[in-house]
Simulated scan of single mutants.
Amino acid sequence: MVKVLKTGLFSTIQDLGRHGYQDYGVPYSGVMDMYSASVANVLLGNDEYAAVLEITMTGPTLEFGCDTSICVSGANISPKINDTLIKLNKPISVKNGDIISFGNLVWGFRAYLAVLGGFKTENVMNSYSMYQGVTKQSMLFKNDTLLIDVPLKDFARKHATIKIRETHFTTEYIEVFRGPEFEKLSKGQQDSLFEQGFTISKENNRMAYQLEEPLMNDLEPIITSSVLPGTVQLTPSGKLIILMRDCQTTGGYPRVLQLKETSINILSQKFTGNPIRFMSSTNSE
């Protein structure tokens, strides 16, 4: 087991999401950055659906109650074991009683802690992903106990490596497709979406990212229609809202763009004040 000594800013258990229940209004949820989470699981030899701990900006402090192996990927939040810095994207053995903690945020925004075999917390609708109203807990709390498998022996693959895409954390470009209501925009509005830069506002979380700069909008609201992670909505006030993993399943704002899956991953590593630019996927081939 793993005991939560401190929670950090916002730490949750996530896997690849809750699929097949959107008709009932249940969000997908799942890890915000599937790329980084998959790196951690692959390096440990876990199944791709294994649940990981998603850590946002400020990390928790955890005490391990058994020997196991871990891997930390994604943002660099200065992870430490017993106050000694450890490397990202590398399988590491931990012993019973070891404490992992996190320090300063160096780059990125969300880190992922994988354990051998994955976390074994509450499973609802075939997913371990925490979400308020679906699971009993929507985030970690102090003194929580997280169940994990106790391996028969140390499986840490000490020489396992993987090349990390640096641009995943540095690029400002977000590749998108045209949304269902894109053609209703004027030529000037369409050009503005791709020619001007945008800034992530302080209103950013697992449900949606809002952008600071408005886009002139004279479109009529649409009949409530389906939305999904990566849908870019345009509000009557001209606010652009990018839906993320915990988004609702329907919405009434025009859907002007749709992020590629890789773009959702990239955006999840950005936070307040970071610049982004939309880039048409058809122009990136």
Rank of each mutant, 00 (worst) to 15 (best):
S78C: 06
G59I: 01
G65C: 06
D33W: 11
F64W: 05
N46D: 13
V42F: 08
S36Y: 01
L53Q: 08
N41Y: 06
P60C: 04
S69P: 07
S36G: 08
S38R: 15
Y49D: 12
A37I: 02
S38D: 15
E63M: 14
S38C: 10
M57K: 04
V39W: 10
N46W: 14
G65S: 09
C71G: 10
V72T: 05
T56F: 03
S73P: 08
M57T: 02
C66L: 09
S78F: 00
D47M: 04
G59A: 03
T61K: 10
S69E: 14
T61S: 12
C71E: 08
A40N: 01
T61E: 14
P79E: 11
S69W: 10
L43G: 13
I77A: 00
V42H: 12
L44D: 05
D67K: 12
F64Y: 07
T56W: 01
I70P: 12
S69Q: 14
I70H: 06
C66N: 12
A75V: 08
F64H: 05
D47W: 02
E54Q: 12
V52N: 00
I55F: 06
T68D: 15
T58P: 02
G45A: 11
A40I: 07
A37Y: 09
V72R: 02
V72E: 01
L62H: 09
I70C: 12
G45W: 13
S78H: 00
V42C: 11
L43E: 11
T61V: 15
I70K: 05
E48G: 00
M57L: 14
C71L: 03
D47K: 06
V39Y: 11
E54S: 14
G65E: 15
D67F: 09
F64V: 07
A40S: 15
G74F: 00
V72S: 03
A50T: 02
L53H: 12
L43T: 08
I77P: 01
M34T: 12
S36R: 07
A40D: 04
